[in-house]
Design a protein around this nucleic acid. Structure first.
Lengths: 343, 343
DNA sequence: CTGTTAGCGCTTTCAT
DNA sequence: ATGAAAGCGCTAACAG
């Protein structure tokens, strides 16, 4: 691993001063075209690239954005987060930086990890995700004046600290309801997340609102919460299916719960998509693979990544941004219309 | 965002020279216990952390390992890779470094990205994954003397360049066959990956070997390759099921194909787990969710991450390491034994 | 438009 | 055991 080329070597070879080479890179308009050309040629010849550490030391930057990968205690995976990370990596690169991955405990305890990274000047800022109610990171970073942007809101009483991007869950479930109404359904139940989950509440609100607009009942009687979204086996769906009158359609707060509902349906001899319509949320890979294909709401991942990075760099504009998910219709909600593929 | 504490500030406050503070951090045994204690106290007081850029500039290191996230052209996700990335992040942190994420085109074209990172001294080395036949990265990095380790082999004619860790696919499918034989099966088909895929060939070899040991037929007649693993809808499985005599068990090269086979089975009124046994490979989240639960081979992710980082730092030992996957038995291969949960 | 000087914060080398 | 000097590779600020 030979030593990398330095600015000085380029300067000598091109017969100019170090500073001129530096300018060729950072302020080319300051050079006479012919000098610029010559310097550039030597740079190419030598394959010179400025050392990020030296440059960072001088400019007080690192060219790195920190991103904390959540350690899921239950060993479950969030496929959606994987796709987001890929999109984010691409987007950060587009702005000439890179992503630095790290882990941290949840809540207050994790702040020291953020503090450490900052104290060492290892990162220029953070992209936050996996936000939780009462998440302390946002306010803490804001108070420190650290650049950051969040995918997901904090959902506390105070206004959201700092720039954020989120998916409009209510709009999503409302779309699902509209779609089901268009199929002729007039009795639409909701399979919710455990009580107090703000994402779940948001998604339930959209269902409630859209139902109200169509004069469809959307009271507690039509809503069943899953006790544990990751291991849902359709108990909640079962409760709704065993109630009278049985709803003809179910909107689930996410794909995991919708998938659990398949079981409850099958156990009762009810065919998803034919006898009872079903929609999910997240458009997980499983949604396209399962039979019948699960209609689900696709989150605009690339756009989220793009917006979050932009907001991190230019926080002065909108405080936040709500993106609409897109309904991907498959056979679980409209037999004969299954596209069978992935979104 | 106030300026971070420097070594000099600590030195002044502690009444020692800069060098002494540096030693307190990097060579504490060189200090008199009382001095060390005093310096440490000031460090804590001020929350001092050495600047990674300055230190790196001096020590010719960056404290970062590069990891390329594959951009899947077909938009598919590899859940397994997501879990590996989490494990890797944790493992790299354990050694006091961090992971730097980047993207690069496949093949030769991507090498310039690696080169760029190296020229800028942005990383100290690389962890490679998503290896492909003829992958040029390994030999290229080895020739440059860059530290690296690979999860996955290159599968070319020459010996594998550089340290690697991989999962023993043949051992996995052999385990599956043993399990099926123990259930009384004597006619076991194999659902393979497209021709020429070395991972698929490896997994097929284990099936063939284990079948041979039990005097079970494992010729081409019992093997059906999937044309496209991501969109498999069970055509290959269908061919095997329609042949005479119909196999009573199927070993699939991965979960996606096994999941496709569910359809082929159901289309023929054959119940997976009851009429025909089925096993997958990868132990994807879907395997635990689908009904009946899919028996599958779990890859030891944490161990892979641990070994790959160790080999990167100490490449002198074994050239490579083959890890055994673990068979997770669910109802698809032994009705009544479904644990229903995730691994 | 180009060159010189200074210094970012740290560790290495060499004195003491 | 502690300190002083030098310099890693770069860019900001100024001089010419």
């Amino acid at each position: 691993m030979s030593r990398a080329t330095t600015l000085e070597q380029v300067a000598e070879r091109a017969g100019v001063s170090r500073q001129t080479v530096s300018n060729a890179l950072n302020a080319p308009e300051k050079l006479r075209p012919e000098t610029l050309e010559r310097v550039r040629q030597v740079i190419d010849e030598l394959g010179y690239r400025p050392d990020t550490r030296a440059r960072g030391l001088r400019t007080r930057s690192s060219g790195l954005l920190g991103y904390c990968v959540a350690q899921r205690q239950d060993g479950s995976v969030n496929v959606f987060m994987d796709r987001f990370l890929r999109a984010l990596t691409t987007e950060v690169e587009r702005t000439g930086r890179h992503l630095l991955l790290f882990t941290a405990p949840e809540g207050e305890a994790g702040l020291s990890v953020y503090d450490d990274l900052l104290a060492r000047s290892a990162v220029d800022g953070f992209v936050l995700s996996d936000t939780r109610p009462g998440d302390p990171r946002h306010a803490w970073l804001r108070d420190k004046g650290v650049p950051f942007a969040s995918f997901g809101r904090v959902w506390s009483d105070e206004p959201q600290p700092g720039p954020w991007v989120d998916v409009d869950g209510a709009s999503g479930t409302a779309q699902a309801v509209e779609h089901l109404v268009a199929q002729g359904h007039t009795s639409i139940g909701f399979l919710g997340l455990p009580e107090g989950n703000p994402v779940g509440d948001d998604r339930a609100a959209g269902w409630r609102r859209a139902c109200a607009e169509h004069g469809i009942e959307a009271g507690e009687r039509m809503l069943a919460r899953s006790a544990d979204e990751h291991r849902d086996r359709g108990e909640a769906a079962g409760r709704l299916l065993d109630s009278e009158p049985r709803p003809t359609a179910l909107v689930a707060a996410n794909d995991a719960i919708a998938l659990g509902a398949y079981e409850a349906l099958e156990a009762r001899g009810v065919r998803p998509g034919l006898d009872v319509a079903l929609t999910g949320f997240d458009d997980s890979p499983t949604a396209a693979v399962v039979r019948p294909g699960l209609t689900s709401l696709h989150q605009p991942i690339d756009r989220i990544a793009e917006r979050v990075v932009r907001l991190l760099d230019r926080p002065e504009g909108e405080p936040g941004e709500l993106l609409r998910p897109e309904l991907i219709v498959r056979a679980s909600s409209s037999s004969g219309n299954d596209d069978g593929g992935q979104s």
